[in-house]
């Protein structure tokens, strides 16, 4: 009975879910909340993988896992398509030129662009970094390197192996200031 109700109300459910997403990630997918990432313009496959793994309880935060509990694949695909099509916001914070330059150097040395693309807009399973929230990026990199990001690609942890935390901060600053 409940299942039947859910299936017949799938679109209404999706609306509700979009509202729940918007509450933290912004109606346009650009977050204004510290620690909460922007999701506008993220590659569809990245979003899809992230949402599935969070639903499975192996990625993401408790809040995200709670929101995604039992969400079927088809609704996850719809959410991923929706946010991948939104326009990423323009960075508004001031830029620290030294930190920005250092970040650019570290990114070049570690060839981040080889997967995340030249403008760091991401592709396929590899997320967009340009314009992402600075503190979110820095924390995510730290979590990867310390194996505190379960479900993440182990390749990313390996890619960050041996990079000092100060350089994560520079990288985060640099990426967050890119359009």
């Amino acid at each position: 009975m409940l299942t039947a109700l859910f299936v017949s109300c799938a679109s209404a459910q999706s609306e509700e879910r979009l509202k729940a997403c918007a509450a933290c990630h912004g109606a346009d997918g650009n977050s204004t909340i510290a620690g909460t990432p922007s999701i506008a313009g993220q590659p569809r496959i990245f979003l899809e993988n992230y949402l599935v793994m969070t639903r499975e309880g192996i990625r993401g935060t408790d809040v995200m896992q709670g929101l995604l509990k039992g969400v079927p694949d088809r609704d996850i695909v719809a959410l991923a398509v929706h946010f991948s099509k939104l326009k990423p916001g323009t960075p508004k914070e001031e830029t620290d030129e030294n930190l920005f330059r250092r970040g650019r150097e570290v990114a070049a040395k570690n060839r981040c662009a080889s997967c995340h693309e030249k403008n760091f807009q991401g592709r396929e399973q590899m997320p967009r970094l340009a314009g992402q929230r600075e503190e979110f990026l820095a924390e995510a990199m730290l979590q990867y390197r310390q194996n505190r990001r379960p479900g993440g690609d182990t390749l990313m942890a390996a890619a960050l192996y041996g990079i000092p935390e100060a350089d994560f901060k520079a990288l985060a600053h640099y990426f967050s200031r890119l359009k």
């Binding site: 496959i45 899809e48 993988n49 599935v52 793994m53 694949d73 996850i76 695909v77 570690n110 060839r111 080889s114 997967c115 693309e117 592709r123 396929e124 399973q125 590899m126 390749l155 390996a158 890619a159 960050l160 192996y161 041996g162 990079i163």
Partner: peptide
């Protein structure tokens, strides 16, 4: 050891965009 990802990636391949093929999670 230096980071695994680019380690051994010679200058000639520095611009290479080869990356693992994404899996399908649905």
């Amino acid at each position: 050891p230096p980071p695994a990802w680019h380690q051994g990636k010679p200058p000639a391949l520095a611009e290479s965009k080869l990356a693992p093929v994404p899996g399908k999670m649905t």
